[in-house]
Amino acid sequence: MMNVKTGAERIIAAFSAGKQAFIPFITAGYPTPNITVELALALQEAGAALLELGVPYSDPLADGPTIQRASAQALSYGVTIRRALELAADMRARGLRIPVVLFTYINPVLQYGEERVFKEMEAAGVDGLLIPDLPPEEAENIERLAEEFNRPLIFMVAPTSEQRVAMIATRAKGFLYCVSSLGVTGVRSALDPGLTRFLARVRQYASVPVAVGFGISTAEQASLVASYSDGFIVGSALLEKIKEAEPLLLNPETKEEGFCIIKRFVKQLQSRV
């Protein structure tokens, strides 16, 4: 069934389970390439609706210190777009069914070749592409390829977008990624108070599901945005938890215990939505 649908349809379907979709972000190659594959499966088991798979990059403008650290570690294993897509293919081979969105900066995409990225996404079973530093104004060529390969380009919208909200939201395919608070990814203790107003405006224009990310680290925060969005993305807080479990994950004898800690954390994150 999965193969007869387009990437956009698969992504949209991931949001229709009747509750807020939980979308984990992990960095490909962190803490090691092999463990990334198992992590994806553990996250699926713990209720993830969609997986955001980050390609590590040395010049990551949109990421906070947690993701930067994870990227540096993944880069030390030589993880690039090619390797990240191989890991995605491994995940599929080992039973990952949820949609996967590849998160990468624009420079590596151009270096690798835009069309080649889509071809290999198709081969690896990756459903969509998110490029945080590619504003819609610069995205025409990649949007055309996304259409051709039936793998949507996911756009981001921020509270600062103001007049840009309508332009971005009406162009969105798959889902629309709402940056919950100003600034870069990281763990924040409180969400932006103007967020609900912003989300209401976004939903007015978007015809695809709306997910909130950047700064969600607790079940309380997830429930705060639940009535105004269709899903929530957790990146930095999850990577912090993985870091905490890293010694256990790296030891074959305690690996399962490490995955249990992570699964418990993500189940807890979903407990109030």
């Binding site: 104004e137 610069e138 756009f155 981001m156 919208v157 921020a158 600062t160 940056v179």
Partner: peptide, 14 residues
Amino acid sequence: GGSFVPEPLQAALD
């Protein structure tokens, strides 16, 4: 040239 920045920064640059 151009402007390849995350969305939260784009509005500031505009």
